[in-house]
Amino acid sequence: MSESILHPGADQLEAYVEGTLDEAQQAVLESHLLGCPRCQAELEEWRGLFAALSSMPQLEPSAGFADRVMAHVTLPRSAAARLADRARRWLPRSTLGWALVTLFLALPVAAAAAALAWIAATPWLSLDGVLLWGFEKATAGAAWLTSQASALVLQSRPALWLTGSIETLVATAGLRGIGAAAALFGLIVVASAWILYQNLFRPHTRDVTYAHYSF
């Protein structure tokens, strides 16, 4: 073979063995290899190197490696175990504590039982009647509470200031002005929501942070 033939570079032979040449480059290289023993020999060297490197052995850790690692690992508690832990904190730790809790919890039960016994023993009272009376009283109480609360809110200084301001705004800017202000406010809300989404919920991109930790 004449020395004037252009041989492929070592990079190309390496890429060929690695399998990263495209089809056209591969075809050109293969046709050259057919008639070039020098390049065939160099290709075999690359193949030998790849085979040798790929057969590098893996090391076997000494016995008990996993146990030694696990001795320093803190296992996370399961959700059920964490809940149980939290519940356990509220439980009494002494016999006296248990006795007091039992007494405390028994009081409403005993009171309810006594009330039921009294209703049953009183001929002019029925359970339905008592329940109906209780429901009516509760409804009336809730209605009174609601009216008192709303009166308190409506007559408060901020509420009076707000209604006064709205009246002034309608008188000066008119309904169109208020509509424009509302549209601007809506736009700001949408923009804020978008910025929050971008910063809080969108997944991270580059800068590989596999975990947020510090050692």
């Binding site: 690692v69 320093h72 690992v73 803190t74 996370p76 991270h204 942070t209 596999y210 975990a211 947020h212 930790y213 050692f215």
Partner: peptide, 8 residues
């Protein structure tokens, strides 16, 4: 293994 709870 101790940082698994913070792994993404």
């Amino acid at each position: 293994l101790n940082a698994l709870d913070r792994y993404d």
